[in-house]
Amino acid sequence: MLAYQLDTSEEVLLQPEDLIISKTDTRGHITYANRTFMQIAGYEEHELLGKPHNLIRHPDMPRGVFRFLWQELKQGHEFFGFVKNYTSNGQFYWVFANITPDLNSKGEVKGYFSVRRRPSREAIRQVSEIYQKMLEIEQRSSGQEAPDRSLEFLQQLLQGQGVSYERFVMRLQAASK
């Protein structure tokens, strides 16, 4: 019911100069959000600080994508991905997200740094279709293993194209700005 409402809601478009930046602690709780974030997502600073980052998660996003995100971050890798977020007033916005672990001088992860840039429209078009299929898989699967199933689908899809996930998203982002 909620998804239906959101589908019909308006999209907020990022501008090329927009750079959404946020930081979280190791548990994913927001410790910093820049003003672009606040303006686009429609939150005040105090509404964000200390809140889990999935506050802005859009229900159209398959959980498998976030499963992969955490897999990558836990291995100390950075993550790139197209993410659909939603704003405080029910609108949505697409971003090309890059999340990296923040390491202290001892090399321990003490938080995550996320930069969101304007995504290419072609990427959103293609990714939306894939996410839709992943969502369908998740809806058919039982709760706990749903993200694994949809992630398997994504990985098989990419394997079929003979391309790594990162190369795939990079290529999509480079396709047309």
């Binding site: 930081k23 410790t31 910093y32 005040e44 600073e45 105090h46 600080l49 923040d102 938080g111 740094f113």
Partner: peptide
Amino acid sequence: LHHRVTQTK
């Protein structure tokens, strides 16, 4: 470089 000023209100 990761420190920021928060609770700016």
